[in-house]
Amino acid sequence: MATKAVCVLKGDGPVQGIINFEQKESNGPVKVWGSIKGLTEGLHGFHVHEFGDNTAGCTSAGPHFNPLSRKHGGPKDEERHVGDLGNVTADKDGVADVSIEDSVISLSGDHCIIGRTLVVHEKADDLGKGGNEESTKTGNAGSRLACGVIGIAQ
């Protein structure tokens, strides 16, 4: 089992970053940390998408990683996509320092995120509470600013 993974985020604009993942036990939580720069100040949706395909930019990554066919939600919700990591918060300089621990994603097994795409979005994720159909699919997080395929790390 891989215990570490990394993702280099890039987009068409100024947004870029490096996100690290570490899972010490196969059924334990995954620590997610790193930094994203070039964002507007505020909240930005942060999700693992189904495919590791960036051939047409971030759009070819498909929908959120959702092997259990659930509705979109927040990272602490029972009803959520596996890939729903909530929001990252950018400061006035456009930098989001990421520090998350998640017990639904994994670096092995059915919820493995390796080979899938991590995406940072234009807007805040409403965590499935926006009151419309799009909220239950995407959290109304808007366009995909930057993305990268999650790969095994040393």
Rank of each mutant, 00 (worst) to 15 (best):
A2F: 08
A2T: 13
K4T: 09
K4S: 13
A5S: 05
V6E: 10
C7K: 01
C7H: 01
C7Q: 01
V8C: 14
V8E: 11
V8I: 07
V8Q: 11
V8F: 14
L9W: 00
L9N: 00
L9E: 03
K10F: 03
K10D: 08
K10Y: 09
G11N: 09
D12N: 06
G13E: 06
P14L: 09
V15T: 07
V15A: 14
Q16K: 14
G17F: 01
I18L: 06
I19G: 02
I19S: 03
F21G: 05
F21W: 01
K24V: 07
E25L: 04
E25D: 11
E25G: 08
E25N: 10
S26I: 14
N27K: 05
N27G: 07
G28C: 06
P29V: 03
W33L: 10
G34W: 03
S35G: 07
I36Q: 00
I36R: 00
K37C: 10
K37P: 03
G38H: 05
G38T: 00
G38W: 00
G38V: 03
E41F: 00
E41P: 15
G42D: 01
G42Y: 00
L43W: 06
H44I: 00
F46M: 15
H47E: 04
H47D: 08
V48C: 04
V48N: 00
H49V: 02
H49D: 06
H49R: 07
H49N: 07
E50G: 08
E50S: 11
E50H: 02
F51N: 05
G52A: 06
D53V: 12
D53S: 06
N54F: 08
T55F: 06
T55Q: 02
T55V: 03
A56I: 14
C58I: 12
C58G: 09
T59Y: 09
S60H: 08
S60T: 14
S60I: 12
G62T: 05
H64L: 05
H64P: 05
H64Q: 07
F65L: 11
N66K: 07
P67A: 06
S69L: 11
R70K: 12
K71F: 07
K71C: 05
H72M: 07
G73W: 02
G74L: 06
K76V: 12
K76E: 12
K76Q: 13
D77I: 05
D77Q: 08
E79A: 13
E79L: 13
H81P: 05
H81C: 05
H81K: 06
V82C: 06
G83L: 11
G83T: 14
D84K: 05
L85F: 05
L85D: 00
G86I: 00
N87K: 04
N87T: 12
T89C: 12
A90D: 08
A90K: 00
D91T: 07
K92R: 07
K92A: 08
K92P: 12
K92E: 08
D93R: 09
G94D: 05
G94W: 01
G94K: 03
V95S: 10
V95Q: 13
D97E: 15
D97L: 10
V98T: 00
I100P: 00
I100W: 08
I100F: 12
I100M: 11
E101M: 11
D102N: 06
D102S: 14
S103K: 11
V104C: 13
V104K: 14
V104Y: 15
V104E: 14
I105E: 02
S106G: 09
S106R: 09
L107K: 02
S108H: 12
G109T: 02
D110I: 12
H111S: 11
H111Y: 11
I113N: 00
I114N: 03
I114P: 03
R116W: 07
R116K: 11
L118G: 02
V119Q: 03
H121T: 15
H121E: 07
K123I: 14
K123V: 08
K123D: 09
A124I: 12
D125E: 06
D125C: 14
L127I: 05
G128V: 06
G131Q: 03
G131M: 15
N132S: 10
E133R: 12
E133H: 13
E134W: 15
S135R: 08
S135F: 02
S135W: 04
K137E: 06
T138I: 04
T138Y: 15
G139V: 07
G139Q: 06
G139M: 01
G139C: 14
N140P: 05
N140S: 07
A141S: 12
G142L: 04
G142C: 10
S143C: 12
R144W: 13
R144P: 15
R144Q: 12
L145N: 10
A146I: 08
A146L: 07
C147E: 14
C147L: 08
C147G: 09
G148H: 00
G148D: 02
G148I: 02
V149D: 02
V149W: 03
I150M: 03
I150H: 00
G151R: 14
G151C: 14
G151P: 00
I152T: 13
A153I: 09
A153Y: 09
